[in-house]
Write a protein that binds this DNA or RNA. Structure first.
Length: 478
RNA sequence: GCCCCCAUCGUCUAGCGGCCUAGGACUCCACCCUUUCAAGGUGGCAGCACGGGUUCGAAUCCCGUUGGGGGUGCCA
C-alpha cells in the first residue's frame, strides 16, 4: 500500500460491443494516468456469459486499441479478470463477518419485501442485525451500515454526502455463498491498489456503499470522480437497445479514431484553447496535457452524431494522402484499380463525411471500358435542356478527340472546354454540366477535368458520344 | 415512494460577483470565391427555466418552485 504512482482502473463488462460512453471514460482515465505518470489498469468484469465468449473480451481490447489505448504502452496494465480473485472476495466477506461489520440473515427476498410493506419502509429493515446468526446455506451476509453520514469526495462535483440511514444493509454474499458484484469490485480495487476511480455518474449513488466497504476492510478509499452520462435526443441515458452506441459500428462505417477521440473528449469538457483557436479540433497530446476533472461539466451530454461527422470530415480532409489511402482501402471494392483511385483521391478527400462514402463518389471511374454510368435522370434533363448544350457537347468531343499523347491533362481539358464554349457565351459552370452528366452520370462529384484525366481519353470520349446518341433518341419522334 | 445529481443558443460548451451589448464550436441561412459538389472567406438567426432573496452590482452566491436525469436486486 505504499505505491505513490496513481493507478486508474477501467472496469468494463464485456457485452458484445463496446459502448461509446465507456470509450469516453476510458479516455479520461487514460489521459489522467499518462499525465500523472500513473497506470491505466484494465480489469474485465467477466460474467459467466462473457467467459464463454472470449471474443467479447477481445472486442474491448481491440476497441481500446483503436482509440489509442493499448498494451504497447508502458502506462497500460491488464487485462485482469474479476473472476481471478473469486477466493479473495469470499475471504474478505468472512473477515467482515468476523469483525462484526457484517451479519447473516435468513430472510428470503420475498420476506424482506413483505416486512418492508408491513412496516411502510422501502427496503431491508435490519431485522437480523442482532440475532447473532451463523453462516448457513440459504443465509445471506449483509453489511452492517454504520450510523452517521458518508461523504464522497468527488473530483468532478465536490463533496456529496449521504445519510447512512437511507442506505439499507446491503447483501455481500448470496444465500449460495457467492459474492455480490459490489463486494468483488471493492476487493479487487483494494488488491490492485487502485487510487483513482473515474467513471460515469450512474455509479455515484452506489459510491457510499463502496466507500464504507473500503473502510471496513481497513483500506483508504480511492479518489472518486463521476463524469456525467451520455444521453440521446430524448435526454435518456444512451442504451444499447435504443441507441447506436457501439464504438465498432462507427469505426466500421468510416469514422476515424482521431475524430471519435476528439469528439468524445469535447463532451462535458472543452480544451482551454478552443475559444481562442475558433476550433475544437485538438491533438491527443494537447488534450492529454490539458484535461482536468475539475473542468468537466456537471450535466449530461447529448451524443450528437452530426457534430461527430463534422469532426470526422475535418480529420479526413487533413489526412496525409498516403494515410488516407491506407485508411480508405478497406472501404473500396477489391477489384478496383488502386492506382486509378489514388490519382483521384486528393480530390475527394475534402468531400467525404465518412470513409465509407468514398466508393459512391467515384464509382463511375471503375465501371470498366464501354460501360455507361447509371444516369441521374433529373440531372440529365436539366443539363441537356439548353439549346446550346447538344452542339457544345459535339464541339467538346471534337476538341478532345484532337488531343494528342501527353495532352490529356486536366489543364488542357479545361482550356479546351473554355475554347469550345466561347461561341455559346456561357460560363464554365454551365458548360461543364452536360459533359459531367455524360461522363459521371450525375450533376455532382469530384472536379470534372481531374476525373476525366483519370478516366482516360478513350473512355471519356466514348461516354460523351454515347450521350450524343441518347440526345438523338430522346429528341426523335416516337 | 426514498436517495443522489443536474439546469446558459436546437446541440456541445465558455463564463467561477463588475471585463456580458452573454463568447466559441456543430447545425441552419445569406453573400463572396468557384469547374458541379465540397473546401475556404464574410456575415446572420438563436440562449442565462421561473420566483424570491444577498449585494452598490448577479448568468455567476443563497433559498424555493418547476423541469430533466441517475440510483434504489440474493443483476453486473
Amino acid at each position: 500500500m505504499t505505491s505513490t504512482r496513481p493507478r486508474f482502473r477501467f472496469a468494463p463488462s464485456p457485452t458484445g460491443s463496446f459502448h461509446v460512453g465507456g470509450a469516453r471514460t476510458a479516455l479520461h482515465n487514460w489521459a489522467l494516468a499518462r499525465r500523472s505518470g500513473g497506470t491505466f489498469v484494465l480489469r474485465i468484469e467477466d460474467t459467466d456469459e462473457a467467459r464463454n465468449r472470449p471474443e467479447w473480451t477481445q472486442g474491448i481490447i481491440d476497441a481500446l486499441a483503436w482509440i489509442g489505448i493499448s498494451a504497447d504502452d508502458a502506462h497500460f496494465e491488464g487485462p485482469h479478470f474479476q473472476s481471478e480473485n473469486a477466493d479473495a472476495h469470499v475471504a474478505a466477506a468472512h473477515r467482515l463477518f468476523e469483525s462484526g461489520a457484517a451479519y447473516y440473515c435468513d430472510l428470503t427476498g420475498q420476506e424482506v419485501q413483505d416486512r418492508a410493506k408491513e412496516l411502510g419502509l422501502t427496503g431491508y429493515d435490519g431485522y437480523s442485525r442482532d440475532r447473532g446468526l451463523e453462516a448457513a446455506p440459504g443465509r445471506v451476509l449483509r453489511f452492517r451500515v454504520p450510523d452517521g453520514t458518508t461523504v464522497v469526495s468527488d473530483g468532478v462535483r465536490g463533496d456529496v454526502s449521504f445519510e447512512n440511514e437511507t442506505i439499507e444493509d446491503f447483501v455481500l454474499l448470496r444465500g449460495n455463498g457467492t459474492p455480490m458484484f459490489l463486494l468483488a469490485n471493492v476487493v479487487d480495487d483494494i488488491k490492485m491498489e487502485i487510487t483513482d476511480v473515474v467513471r460515469a455518474e450512474e455509479h455515484l449513488p452506489n459510491t457510499p456503499k463502496q466507500q464504507m466497504l473500503w473502510e471496513a476492510l481497513g483500506a483508504t478509499p480511492p479518489r472518486w470522480a463521476h463524469v456525467p452520462v451520455l444521453v440521446n435526443e430524448q435526454r435518456k441515458k444512451l442504451s444499447k437497445r435504443r441507441d447506436k452506441v457501439a464504438l465498432e459500428s462507427y469505426r466500421d462505417e468510416g469514422i476515424l479514431p482521431g475524430a471519435m477521440v476528439n469528439y468524445l473528449m469535447t463532451l462535458g469538457w472543452t480544451p482551454p484553447g478552443a475559444e481562442a483557436a475558433g476550433s475544437e479540433i485538438f491533438t491527443w497530446a494537447e488534450m492529454e496535457a490539458d484535461f482536468d476533472l475539475a473542468d468537466v461539466t456537471l450535466s449530461p451530454a447529448f451524443f450528437d452524431v452530426r457534430k461527430l461527422v463534422a469532426f470526422n470530415k475535418q480529420y479526413i480532409k487533413n489526412l496525409p494522402l498516403d494515410e488516407f489511402l491506407a485508411a480508405v482501402d478497406a472501404e473500396l471494392p477489391v477489384d478496383w484499380d488502386r492506382r486509378r483511385f489514388a490519382s483521384i483521391a486528393p480530390h475527394i478527400m475534402e468531400r467525404l463525411e465518412r470513409l465509407g462514402d468514398a466508393p459512391g463518389l467515384v464509382d463511375f471511374l471503375f465501371l470498366g471500358d464501354g460501360v455507361d454510368p447509371e444516369l441521374d435522370h433529373d440531372a440529365w434533363a436539366k443539363a441537356s435542356a439548353p439549346d446550346w448544350a447538344a452542339p457544345l457537347l459535339d464541339d467538346v468531343i471534337e476538341a478532345y478527340s484532337a488531343l494528342g499523347d501527353g495532352e490529356w491533362t486536366h489543364e488542357t481539358l479545361k482550356a479546351a472546354m473554355e475554347t469550345a464554349m466561347g461561341p455559346y457565351e456561357v460560363k464554365l459552370g454551365k458548360a461543364q454540366a452536360l459533359p459531367r452528366v455524360a461522363v459521371t452520370g450525375r450533376a455532382v462529384g469530384p472536379p470534372l477535368f481531374e476525373a476525366m484525366e483519370t478516366l482516360g481519353q478513350i473512355e471519356t470520349i466514348r461516354r460523351m458520344r454515347s450521350a450524343v446518341t441518347r440526345l438523338g433518341e430522346s429528341s426523335a419522334p416516337d
